[in-house]
Design a protein around this nucleic acid. Structure first.
Length: 595
RNA sequence: GGUCCCGUAGCUCAGUUGGAUAGAGCAGCAGAUUUCUAAUCUGCCGGCCGCGCGUUCGAGCCGCGCCGGGAUCACCA
């Protein structure tokens, strides 16, 4: 039975008995804020027209009626126009028993909807950086949250494995690499390839300089630099499947994938489907034909195909080059179409940075104009803001990018040092120390990034991110570890944790607060699912941990002599730990049992 | 210039869809440990929610207009 519905119905009956029938929107029942006495609050302002009395008098009247007619409502108080209803304490022990015995607490029943979420989508010419970390963490977490909401989720990764940028690192490796491999250099594959991407840029720049010194304009120099011409030639050869180029491409991409796998594994993210652009970049041309036939697109004299979106407040957009080759938009139209067809998707979510807002605006609009509104309306661009550093934006040219692997290693290392300093690792095996440091270091990183609303540009301050106090992942993990410690000690001394709380066990106000927070978990998961916002889960879990930590600090559990009260507190602690675990797993954060 | 996003405490951020006296953390100040984990807890200090007008019983939230910051408007992906 849903408590909100039950109470709303009771209140409706009360109001209608007093003032006659009323419309849907006039009943506003909400949780009472913590600083007031009560559990649920009725806002009476919308009812004044019916009651024709002052807010206070109206609240008074309804409160009186409810306390005499509804057994669960013990008392009420009125503050201004707000009617605070106080439920009987035994009611909350009942609610607690319900949630404790629900094995799938916080997991919605299957909806039958299938949702694909595409995230990560790296280029294979350089290693992942901090921006990718936000992308990956968001994508994975949103996938987890949608699963908890009962949807079938397909996690997809579209690897950008072809194009001129890939040829650049291939060419630089061929020219200057001397046959270097990940094995021979001891470098991670993606870092090795990234090194040659930088190498290309270096030579390219010096060639431009030379040409300009020889009298060419900057524009000419950029076009004429031999190394650039060679890279373009390489791309042509690749498209013609030249065996030598193709083999090199396969080899170097293989190195990159091996490197990415390590990073993905460290981040704890994974995928159900991996698409490669080299296999999908020809898609979408038939849609262009279709658009031309329908008169939605038009052809310019140079044979290129465009759509005019000026009447929608946008610009004209190229869809196919004059030579018949695809552009980004062509491919995305094609892959979107194919994905909906192949997987019978109900929704498609793209986790892509906000610098591509315009692209997705156009994508959806074009599909709509082609007549596919019934599914293009189910495309969501989960747009996230840039990650900035205290020094400003990350720029690869200026070497201010934060490498993903380095950052992860730093976080784990810092976690380890701090643990060691506090003596937390005493008596641990090397393996245990590693496991805990990894969980804590990554917990800090993940929570720090996910607690921020995705839309917003966020500041990543390395010093602050490794702070383990306050609103941080490690604080939540710590709270969990403490609870586990209590439960362990209870088990050791043979004290059982009861499955439910007897209705006669006296509950403190803090304990009722804690139960209330526990009952809000499913609604929180739902809200996070509707808004694609892991930050909502983060705020909830932190609040729960904080509440418990405060409570737990002032009230002993194991030393409580009254067996019923002790049992109640143990049961409460156990559920808090369980909900922390559930919430954190939606963020992709592991929770240690000791730390 | 067009389109989109952001603006809340010194700093980093919440604010559950329009409700009560706007919340956390960090930083600063003052305290708490014979204790089940002090990676903790308690208290204090700190606010024209960018500005103005409007909508209504009620606006940080909705509408309009400004101001400030960012992204984007490529035959790159």
């Amino acid at each position: 039975m849903n408590i909100e519905n039950y109470l709303t119905e009771a209140v409706r009956q009360a109001v209608e008995a007093l003032y006659g029938p009323l419309g849907e929107e006039q009943l506003q029942l909400q949780k009472t804020r913590r600083e007031f006495e009560g559990d649920y609050t009725l806002v009476t302002f919308p009812l004044l027209r019916k009651s024709r009395k002052s807010p206070e008098a109206t609240a008074q009247e309804i409160g009186e009626y409810l306390t005499t007619h509804v057994p669960e409502i013990r008392s009420y108080n009125v503050i201004k126009g707000f009617l605070n209803l106080v439920l009987d304490a035994s009611f909350w022990s009942g609610r607690f028993t319900e949630l404790a015995s629900d094995e799938h607490y916080g997991e919605a029943p299957a909806t039958g909807r299938t949702i694909m979420i595409e995230y990560s989508s790296p280029n294979t010419n350089k290693p992942l950086h901090l921006g990718h970390i936000r992308n990956n963490l968001l994508g994975y977490s949103v996938a987890q949250i949608l699963k908890a909401n009962g949807h079938t989720v397909i996690k997809a990764n579209l690897v950008n494995d072809r194009g001129i940028h890939i040829c650049k690192s291939m060419l630089a490796w061929k020219l200057y690499g001397g046959g270097e491999t990940p094995e021979s250099s001891g470098m991670k594959g993606d870092h090795l390839v990234g090194k040659y991407y930088v190498e290309f840029d270096k030579h390219y720049k010096s060639q431009i300089k030379e040409l300009m010194a020889a009298g060419q304009s900057e524009e000419e120099a950029k076009k004429n630099a031999p190394i650039m011409r060679e890279a373009q030639e390489m791309l042509r050869k690749w498209e013609a499947r030249d065996p030598e180029v193709y083999t090199l491409w396969e080899t170097m991409n293989g190195w990159v994938y091996a490197g990415f796998d390590v990073t993905y594994k460290a981040l704890g993210v994974d995928f159900d489907k991996v698409y490669y652009e080299s296999q999908t970049y020809l898609l979408g041309k038939s849609l262009v034909e279709e658009g031309l036939k329908k008169g939605v697109f038009y052809r310019r004299p140079d044979n290129s195909v465009w759509i005019d979106l000026t009447s929608d407040g946008l610009d004209e957009k190229l869809l196919l080059r004059g030579d018949g080759t695809s552009v980004y938009m062509t491919q995305d139209l094609g892959t979107a179409y194919r994905r909906f067809e192949d997987n019978k998707l109900d929704d498609m979510i793209y986790v892509v940075g906000n610098e591509q807002n315009y692209h997705f605006q156009v994508l959806k609009l074009v599909l709509k104009k082609l007549g596919y509104a019934e599914w293009s309306d189910h495309i969501t661009h989960l747009s996230y803001g840039m990650v900035e550093l205290p020094e400003g934006k990350m720029k690869s040219r200026e070497g201010t990018v934060v490498d993903a692997d380095d950052l992860i290693a730093d976080m784990v290392q810092t976690a380890r040092e701090m643990s060691a300093e506090l003596g937390k690792l005493d008596g641990c095996t090397e393996e245990e120390a590693n496991a805990v440091s990894t969980m804590v270091g990554l917990g800090a990183l993940k929570y720090f990034i996910l607690k921020v609303d995705p839309k917003k540009t966020m500041l990543f301050d390395p010093r602050e991110s490794i702070d383990f106090n306050g609103n941080t992942g490690p604080f939540i993990q710590y709270t969990h570890a403490r609870i586990c410690s209590v439960l362990r000690k209870a088990a050791e001394s043979g004290v059982a944790v009861p499955a439910e709380i007897g209705s006669d066990v006296p509950l403190l106000a803090e304990e009722i607060d804690l139960i209330k927070t526990l009952t809000e978990y499913p609604a929180t998961v739902k809200a996070a699912g509707e808004n694609f916002a892991p930050s909502i889960i983060g705020a909830y879990v932190y609040d729960l941990a904080k509440q418990f930590n405060g409570y737990y600090h002032d009230h002993s559990i194991l030393k409580e002599e009254n067996a019923a009260v002790r049992g109640m507190r143990l049961a409460l602690a156990q559920q808090v730990a369980r909900v922390i675990r559930k919430g954190m797993s939606l963020l992709g954060i592991d929770v240690p049992e000791r730390m």
